[in-house]
């Protein structure tokens, strides 16, 4: 990650494994009722797309983690991961 210009980062926020997920449960029910037989479980989270430009600072990864932990997810109920989509 020496430089980036117009980089897209996807942040995935998902409910923690053992946390109740009413939306996921609703999706699972709907899929089952549509005859989708092999479904074991459905979880619903969100994707936050970030577009960045300019030079990454040295502590870029740490600052990404910080903003994911403090703002984009709630660690009490959610996990997060982020990845760089492409360098353009």
């Amino acid at each position: 990650m020496s430089f980036f210009l117009n980089v897209k980062i996807n942040v995935f926020v998902t409910p923690k494994k053992n946390v109740l997920d009413p939306q996921g449960a609703a999706i699972a029910h709907a899929m089952t009722s549509l005859g989708f037989k092999d479904l074991k479980n459905a979880r619903m989270g969100k994707v936050i797309e970030l577009e960045l430009e300019g030079e990454p600072g040295e502590d870029f990864e740490a600052s990404m983690d910080r903003v994911c932990r403090d703002l984009l997810s709630n660690p009490v109920i959610e996990d997060y991961r982020w990845s760089i989509e492409d360098a353009g």
């Binding site: 009413p22 939306q23 609703a26 709630n74 009490v76 109920i77």
Partner: peptide
């Protein structure tokens, strides 16, 4: 208050959606 950590736990979507 929950988000700010002044109270424990979290409030999520109503079960009835």
């Amino acid at each position: 208050l929950c988000e700010a950590g002044l109270l424990p736990g979290a409030l999520i979507r109503n079960e009835c959606l």
